[in-house]
Design a protein around this nucleic acid. Sequence first.
DNA 1: CAAACATATGAATCATTGTTCATATGTTAT
DNA 2: ATAACATATGAACAATGATTCATATGTTTG
Lengths: 121, 121
Amino acid sequence: MADMNDIIERCGFLCVHEATVERVLSEMPADEKLYDLAELFKVFGDSTRIKILYALFEAELCVCDIAQLLGLTQSAVSHQLRVLKSGRLVKPRKEGKTVFYSLADDHVRTLIAQGMEHINE
Amino acid sequence: MADMNDIIERCGFLCVHEATVERVLSEMPADEKLYDLAELFKVFGDSTRIKILYALFEAELCVCDIAQLLGLTQSAVSHQLRVLKSGRLVKPRKEGKTVFYSLADDHVRTLIAQGMEHINE
DNA sequence: CAAACATATGAATCATTGTTCATATGTTAT
DNA sequence: ATAACATATGAACAATGATTCATATGTTTG
C-alpha cells in the first residue's frame, strides 16, 4: 500500500511561466548581496533609529544630546548607535569624554529623502 | 529620612549642547511621519521580501512563479506579498485564477538601487 | 454543479530584536 | 589616586514578526 508521501508540488509545473522565471533567475544578484541589502534596510526599520538618523541629519550630536532630544535612556541610545555604526550609517568623533556622532555619508541622506517621498505621495 | 528616589538624571543638564538640541528639535518631522518612515523601511528589511522585490524588478510575476523562483512555499510568498502590498510597494493584476504582481512605482527601484550602492561602496 | 487549481488567510510556533538594569571602560579634574 | 562623568556592554525580558500547516475564497473547466 502506498503511503501518503506521494503528494507533490503541483503548482510549480503547471502555472509557472518558465521562460520568465529562468531569465529572472539568471539576473538575480547573489544571495549574499540580497541578504546584506535586507540587513541595511533593517537598520533603517526602527523608529528610534530613524529618529536618531533624522536628528543627525540636522547636526552632529553627542550621545547625551540625542538621549535628551528624543526622551530616551543613554543606554538605549548607545545600543542603537552601535547598530547604526556597524551598518556604517553613522560615524563617531571622540573629543575627551564625549563622543559626537554624525551621518556617515550622503547615501543615508538620499535613502531617507527617498523614503520620505514615498510616504508623502 | 530621605529614600533613594532622589537620584536624578544628571547627564541631561551638564553635557547637553542646549542650543543645538533646541534647533534640531524644532526641525524634526512629526513623530507620526518618522514612525511611518520606519515602517516603510521595515518592509524592505527582510531578505525574503527583498528577493521578491528584486525578482519583480525584472519582470511581472505570479505568486506561483515567485514561489518556485525563490524556493518558497506558496503560503509564505502570499503572506509577504500582503505586507508588500499594504506598504504600496507592489501592485496586483488579476487575470483569471492567477494574480500577477509588479513593482508599484519607481521609488521602489530607486530605494533598492540606492541601498545597493551603499552595500557596494 | 463538482472538481481542479491559484491565491489568501488564521492560528500556532520559533526566532529575532528593542529596551531596561546593572555594571564596565575610559577620560577629566581635584 | 580618587571622584565625577560620558559612553559602552552584557544579560534578561517582552514584544514583534516570519514561516508552517490547515483551510477558506474565488475562478475556470468538464
